[in-house]
Amino acid sequence: MTVAVERRTRNVTAALLASPSLRLVGKRLLMAIPITLGVSILTFWVLNLVPGSAAQQLLGVEATEEQVRALEREMGLDKPAWVRYLDWLGGAVTGDLGKSFVSDQQVTTLLGERLVVTFELVILAMVGSLALAIPVALLAAYRPNRLFDRLSMVVSVSGLSVANYVLALILVLIFAVQLGWFPAIGYVPFTEDPVENLRTMALPAAAIAFPLFCFYTRFLRGDLVDQLLGQDYIVTAQAKGVGPWRVLIRHAFRNSSFGLITVVGLNLSTLIGATVIIEQIFAIPGLGQLMVQAINTRDMMVVQACVIVFAVVTVVANLVTDLLYAVLDPRIRYGSS
């Protein structure tokens, strides 16, 4: 058997190299580039729809025409849009996203610290929602149409109809105002005080996670029950004498997990969108808050950078989802014979 085990590892590597999944990786990577470019062009175009000039905005109404012109020249705003786009793109490729119109700081510096905060929020929400959704869906699917199942369905259907900003306020009302368990707003960096950091992040993460939890529970429970009722390999496993939990987890859940990965990936853009408004409500200094501030001060460079970062993260996340799927699901990994 040791021979066979060695052969197994060799088989896996060889199969991976020759397999369709590697071709898929290449294809997806190639597709991600034009999508990212398209996103940046679109952003640039949309932000340049603004009536009135950014320089005018910065200087205020009293500024003379010469002053405005001078500032425009300084900011490079006198050049045609496509030249400015190419300039910006050239910088972006080398990691230079320009300077903030308002604070004169490097945009990359501003983004850096904020990105970490938003990243933590996203991860907390994602992990939290999955950690809760998986056991709930398994329990619901264990005995379909019984009390727990129905209850979980009612919760997830109504949960999907609650806007996250409403949910955020309800959470604040209950857990901050009434019970005082968590702070209503504010943020403490993780490096400063990990415990306090998690306490400040708890409510915002929950506000983002709850709708996701509802969505994942519904999806997973549906997929599990469909398999339990309709798939022959489930009956095969039962006919082996395998216990119900093992059938549910090793057979049904294993198959559902691939679909779940896709759903999680596709949901990521919604998740990122949610951080914008939730960070605003809880005064969390993340990317979303930075963007809303920049929008209000017409800080174009920063808005642009934020939108691009959000878009790139979405594209990359979708790419990673596809790849994970390809690497994990043997049906794709090995192609069919």
């Binding site: 398209g38 949309v46 853009s269 914008v276 408004i277 809303v292 017409r298 934020c306 878009a311 979405t314």
Partner: peptide, 14 residues
């Protein structure tokens, strides 16, 4: 690929 809320915000502001 766009987080639509993000760009909608930008458009609305513009």
């Amino acid at each position: 690929a766009f987080p639509s809320l993000v760009l909608t915000l930008a458009v609305a502001q513009s």
